[in-house]
């Protein structure tokens, strides 16, 4: 026995079993993955007019042909008191509201479906794009040049030159540009307001403002609604 143990020296296994280590690491990774925020929220910058006095003056300055007023309406769920972001309606009119034919049930206000679920708003986008045609066209041309890297071979430089030129076009007063006045009824959902503000960015509209809805607007809206329901 004694001789045997001497000749058979025990070989120690030099390898360490890493399985528990891996287990623990995996656990920690899962924890960190669940607790982190990888995606940061985005922001949309808006500026409201300072106060009502200025607002009215500005509104008068706006040329009739340039102004587009968009009214956002929504539906409030009676049970929850929340506004459904998929249930919205848009109304718009160009220029000043035509109130003289209101008694006959006619005005220059139009009703537009808000859009499909993917957040595409074909009707209002088409209208805005047409209104802002000159700018949109120029931006599209500019974009083509940007994609071909015509401004600079350096990607970053190319980007910044493009941004600068695009901004100049958006604010170019020699072009025909609309002024959009956005109004929302109390029933409209926040998502609707944000998506209409989004349309301003998509259509490169530089002049827009959020305003309060007034009696004329709501009267016209009720009338258009009734008229469309009859149909």
């Amino acid at each position: 026995m004694a001789i045997k143990s001497k000749s058979r020296q025990k070989k120690f296994d030099t390898r360490i079993d890493f399985t528990p280590m891996v287990d623990m690491n995996m656990l920690l990774i899962t924890f960190f993955m669940l607790c982190t925020t990888m995606i940061k929220s985005q922001t949309l910058q808006i500026a409201l007019p300072t106060n009502e006095k200025v607002e009215k003056e500005q509104q008068n300055k706006v040329k009739q042909s340039e102004a587009v007023t968009i009214i956002i309406d929504g539906k409030i769920d009676e049970k929850t008191g929340l506004s459904n972001p998929e249930d919205g309606m848009l109304y718009y009119y160009e220029g000043m509201p035509e109130t003289d034919r209101l008694a006959q049930g006619e005005s220059n206000m139009e009703q537009v479906e808000f859009g499909d679920k993917d957040g595409l708003y074909p009707a209002i986008r088409g209208i805005l794009m047409k209104k802002n045609e000159e700018v949109v066209k120029r931006i599209a041309d500019l974009k083509k040049e940007w994609k071909e890297m015509k401004f600079s071979k350096d990607e970053e430089k190319n980007d910044s030159i493009y941004q600068e030129k695009a901004k100049a076009i958006r604010n170019d007063s020699t072009l025909k540009r609309p002024v959009v006045i956005i109004k929302a009824t109390p029933n409209a959902s926040y998502a609707h307001v944000v998506s209409v503000l989004d349309e301003m960015q998509i259509n490169n509209i530089s002049r827009y403002q959020i305003d309060r809805i007034n009696d004329v607007d709501s009267a016209m809206m009720i009338m258009v609604k009734a008229k469309n329901e009859k149909k």
Binding site: L48, G81, S83, A184, T185, P186, N187, S189, Y190, I210
Partner: peptide, 15 residues
């Protein structure tokens, strides 16, 4: 920061 279902009247108060 507001929820997308928030009625505009609520956000409007803050604005």
């Amino acid at each position: 920061k507001a929820d997308q279902t928030t009625p505009y009247s609520v956000v409007n108060v803050v604005m």
